Amino acid sequence: MELSDIELILLWQKGEELAFEAIYKRYAVQLLSIAYQKVGERDIAEDIVQEVFITLFRNKEAADSISSLFAYLYVTLKNKILDAYRRDVLQRKYLHHVNTSFVDERDNSPYFQIETRDLEKKLEFEIERLPPQCGKVFKLSRQKHLSNKEIALQLGISENTVEQHMRKALRILRGNLLYYDKSMMLLLVMLHTHLN
């Protein structure tokens, strides 16, 4: 007999991790379908659904107070999708700002040169913190200017895997540098050809 959502939640709270896995299996495909319809990119949809379940996992102690698990997951999914849209709009605004004004603001003043070096160091630091394979792919693409096909051949992986690593790298870097206004601009300048 199939357990109800609340029975699974109570088992999970008692330490049965397989109960959380059962909740995931019960709703992940449905949530992924909804997310994919809204964002149109499978990898982004998968990331959003993963964030939904991370939110549930972090709310473990209070999960037994959820009256409808699907409603909870659906509302969380909707909020995560809205967050993704906001990030995308913000990034587009940065790109627009970079394209229209940042280049014109550049000068040869010592202050600007020091600031630029500082931003480049921050970016290099974040690149070094990328997951190993992700970092390799990113460096071969951005620093060695290899095509996805060339990277795939060199690392013995598929072109699709190369693309996934690049998207992941860009997502991590954007997230880690989002709080640095000009760092974000510098990142977008460096990655502009990849993003377009």
Rank of each mutant, 00 (worst) to 15 (best):
Y74C: 00
G135Q: 09
V52A: 02
G156V: 01
D64V: 09
D64F: 15
R92K: 13
K80D: 02
R142E: 13
L130A: 11
Q143K: 10
T116E: 14
L146M: 03
T76R: 05
N148C: 05
V98D: 02
L146H: 06
K139S: 09
L32C: 05
F57W: 15
I127D: 11
L82W: 01
L95E: 13
S33K: 14
L119D: 02
I114W: 04
S147Q: 00
G40F: 14
S101N: 14
A84E: 10
L155I: 00
R92Y: 07
L153F: 01
V89P: 00
S65P: 07
F53H: 10
H96P: 00
E46V: 06
L73I: 10
E61S: 12
Q133S: 12
Y36E: 12
F125Y: 15
L155W: 02
Q30T: 04
E51G: 11
R86W: 01
K60T: 01
L140H: 02
L119R: 13
I44D: 12
I44F: 13
E124I: 08
K139Q: 02
T76P: 00
E61N: 11
L119W: 03
N99E: 12
Q133P: 04
V39F: 05
L90M: 01
A152F: 01
V75Q: 06
L123Q: 02
D47M: 06
I66F: 09
N108Y: 15
S67F: 11
L119T: 10
Y36L: 14
A45D: 04
D104F: 14
D118F: 06
L32V: 05
K121F: 13
R117E: 13
H97N: 12
Q30H: 09
K38W: 06
R58D: 09
K144G: 04
A62G: 05
E46D: 07
F138A: 07
L95V: 13
A35G: 08
L73M: 03
N148H: 11
K38Y: 07
